[in-house]
Design a binder for these strands. Structure first.
Lengths: 345, 345
DNA sequence: ACAGATAGCGTTAGCGCTAACGTGAACCGA
DNA sequence: TCGGTTCACGTTAGCGCTAACGCTATCTGT
């Protein structure tokens, strides 16, 4: 069943069928209606690969996610795919281990599928092998790499504003020893969130203590490990800002396990505002990142390349704002090793 | 840059280039190597839409998810996509609101894209409009609908075995009043999990009390609402089995908010074993569902249709097993309205 | 009344790939 | 030596679609 079959039954040529399907105005309404009736009757669906081959556009974008298990990503995907669907576009999705070979095969498959652009949400992994693979064939939009070029755009999360609000909030609650638990160490592309934290602290005249800054892994386990170390310190921090909510939740768990309370003994600020952050106890004060805005920027960045896939990319940005819930409160008076008020298993 | 260009540079015909790329053995090794060198040099990537058009197969499957925000689905997607990627296949994913028009547009886009099959993970929504849309064009594999037909397979979660283990476990802990919080009511395809629960209770000679069985919505909010009602009862249940982990977590939250303890006052059993179930406090006793096995069954079901897309489908099944963590414990002696031991905000 | 514009539709070529077939050369056994 | 195989490749014909162009009938202005 192809357009010629439909054409024959409607008594027109296949070109006219094509015109009707694509809404060309160069068809008389009555002819269009006649053709449409045949299309409906036989539930005809055109063959997209033929269109892609002929027209050179697939209407499909690729999305590469490092770890879909991190709740941040599903929330993003939801918005991203929704926006694409509204524009009648498809999403080819792949989660990929962070090692290069599987990554390259993923990109290869996407390029074979004639994607018109790829979004790479992989701040944790090296991207050189990927760019080599892509070879400037289709536009690439990355997250938080702050690197643009031909056919290369970036959407970054501006943590400065949010981080300032967080530090101001904590300072207002009389916190002075504020710790930080960051993301992964290693081949990561310089930790912007960490820098924002440092700048915000300095901006408010607070001491930036190396001892109070630890690396995590953007997951609960990393938050737990880092927080355990911080609690072992003679002079503990009274507040913690974490690089993302999962890290904050990990910290929360360790604090509870040691019989301390949040925010009674230690205040915690997360980052991202994933749904989970409102579900844990206590609900996290966090830096809200508007997922839908973020997704819109990515789609916008992709579509900006439509006229010229090899044109110069742009740097996009989304803001973060502090969302105060219940995991932050006044600093304890004596900033010494804290004793639990009551034991909780 | 197409195969003819490569062919010219390698001094062969385009057919030979095709043969080399597809690993045909009808090419002399030295010729193949020469061609491969040119391919590598120019980083040639074949045009998949041409192959799809010619060959009639796209190597792409569609996956439709109702609510990717439910952690069950990301974990599934991870496995599903991984298995497809290993088989060098693509995944076209869409999350879709449960109303028919957006659903139909999603399916339409997938059919245009020449997917070779669609997995529909939408136990909550009506599927008649979808099947009408699909019109038996490509195989459909559903989850937990227990309906098979031409080009239609189903993968169901066998909750019987797990439910029996759960009830036995609770009975062993001296629980007699066991409640159940189910999934959504309405157009859902008969609640197999609920039936399994009822059968298991009867099998162990326990009373099935209608009053103790409530509907939820597969999310935290539903678990909360249902549990709140159950706690209002004069004669509360001493244990709850939930239709999924999110529901169980919702129940957990309400119990904690009312100053009761788990499992001290009430035991809770979840279903699915999502990662979160090991992270909440206390870690959930739950019916473990092997996500990777589940994903494998779906891929297997799809590929079983490869020889004949219109052939008869099959019913697949995955087992569940009880995983005991910390949310279940001995029943309280007096099965009367319980008083909180201590107040917690 | 007539050249030119326009609307509405048909014809055609070709997007890049590969199955099927065709061909020439090397090889084989009798 | 020679008909038949086999191997290793080239040639060709589309897969279904649509942009570009071509054609005809009607309409417009003078």
């Amino acid at each position: 069943m192809d357009m010629r079959d439909i054409a024959k039954m409607a008594g027109v040529s296949s070109a006219t069928v094509s015109r009707v399907i694509n809404g060309s105005c160069a068809v008389r309404p009555e002819t269009a209606e006649r053709v449409q009736r045949v299309i409906d009757e036989f539930k005809f669906i055109p063959n997209g690969s033929a269109t892609t081959l002929k027209y050179g556009r697939s209407g499909t974008y690729g999305l590469i996610i490092p770890d879909i298990t991190n709740p941040f990503f599903p929330e993003f995907i939801q918005s991203f795919e929704g926006i694409l669907a509204d524009a009648n576009r498809n999403m080819l999705m792949a989660t990929t281990a962070s090692h290069a070979p599987s990554m390259q095969r993923t990109i290869y498959r996407m390029l074979v599928s004639q994607v018109e652009g790829i979004v790479l949400l992989a701040s944790e992994i090296e991207t050189e092998p990927i760019e080599a693979m892509m070879n400037n064939r289709v536009p690439l939009v990355t997250m938080d790499r702050r690197l643009v070029g031909k056919g290369l755009s970036d959407v970054s999360v501006d943590s400065n504003s949010g981080m300032r609000q967080a530090v101001e909030h904590l300072q207002g609650l009389k916190h002075r020893r504020i710790g930080y638990i960051g993301g992964s160490v290693g081949p990561t592309i310089s930790d912007h969130r960490r820098n924002s934290f440092v700048r915000a602290m300095q901006g408010y005249g607070l001491a930036v203590v190396e001892e109070l800054m630890r690396a995590g892994n953007y997951r609960i386990s990393g938050g737990e490990a880092a927080m355990a170390q911080l609690l072992d310190l003679r002079d503990r921090p009274t507040a913690i800002i974490a690089a993302n909510d999962l890290t904050a939740i990990g910290a929360l768990r360790v604090i509870h396990r040691q019989g301390l309370s949040v925010p009674g003994d230690i205040s915690i600020v997360g980052f991202d505002d994933i749904e989970l952050s409102d579900i844990v106890f206590p609900p996290l004060t966090t830096l809200h990142l508007a997922q839908h805005e973020l997704a819109k920027k990515f789609v916008g960045a992709l579509e900006a390349f439509a006229p010229d896939p090899h044109g110069m990319g742009k740097q996009y940005k989304v803001e973060t704002t502090l969302l105060v819930r219940s995991s932050t409160g006044p600093a304890r008076r004596r900033e010494r090793a804290t004793k639990p008020l009551r034991a909780v298993s």
